[in-house]
Design a protein around this nucleic acid. Structure first.
Lengths: 131, 131
DNA sequence: CCGCATCCTTGATGATACTG
DNA sequence: CAGTATCATCAAGGATGCGG
């Protein structure tokens, strides 16, 4: 409408933008991988399937709650497969799915770049902080 | 010490792990790129330098505060260069640094993968949610 | 035009205790 | 062993108003 106020126009633009953001694939992926523990879990599972307690030990920084939450999220997105073996007590194993294997190269690509340029980043930080 | 309790041992492990995490280059990078607006800003600057107000219009979803915060963070890490032109009123221009140009391929790599696999991810989500 | 300071709300994270 | 439930905390994000 031509009678929209500036504020209304801004709000409309923001709403449209939010819609776009919500479906932007890249952003969805970064949201998952950027999570505090997701990359850690994926990297761990890259070596092979792991049981819940093994992951707990491998990633001491994550609380049980966060580990579970991360695993659920990765499972939901189809990166990780959870399989339960009936026994006493039950055994639960987490493994990468095919999709999970496929996302690994993206992760290592990021890691390689980070390792190669972290020195420059830290130098930039010191320059910035020292004035 | 051999006299450590289990709780103490866990705490020590966690502290060591936190130290490791703090210096893990990949995680530092993901922390920045995983930020709500960082990738958006970088993608925008990929087309050329932009003034503050231009970025505000290009990214209506970000509040002024968040945009500034994001730009400061990117500037600190050396991805973005901020240049002020004395005038009335002052003009501020943001541009990618050499390092910023170099990180772009990583970003597009993520984007390409996300675009190629978003369908599978969404399918997995529906499967997971529908039971 | 650019952007800092302030206040406020909300979601993410974590510690702890408990269950099948 | 493999979680869930609850409560507490804290930082991120956002709205608003002011200053250079």
């Amino acid at each position: 409408m031509a009678t929209m106020t500036a504020a209304q126009r801004r709000e409309a633009a923001k709403a449209a933008f939010d819609d776009y953001m919500a479906v932007c694939p890249a952003h969805q992926l970064l949201d998952v991988l950027g999570t505090k523990w997701a990359s850690m879990v994926l990297t761990n599972l890259a070596d092979g399937p792991r049981r819940y307690a093994e992951l707990t030990r491998a990633i001491p920084g994550a609380s049980a709650k966060m580990l579970t939450q991360t695993l659920r999220s990765l499972e939901r997105d189809g990166f990780v497969v959870r399989s339960v073996t009936p026994a006493v007590p039950v055994q639960v194993e987490y493994a990468l799915s095919v999709l999970g294997e496929k996302v690994l190269p993206v992760l290592t690509h990021v890691q390689d770049w980070a390792n190669a340029h972290i020195v420059q980043i830290q130098a930039a930080r010191e320059r910035y902080d020292n004035q």
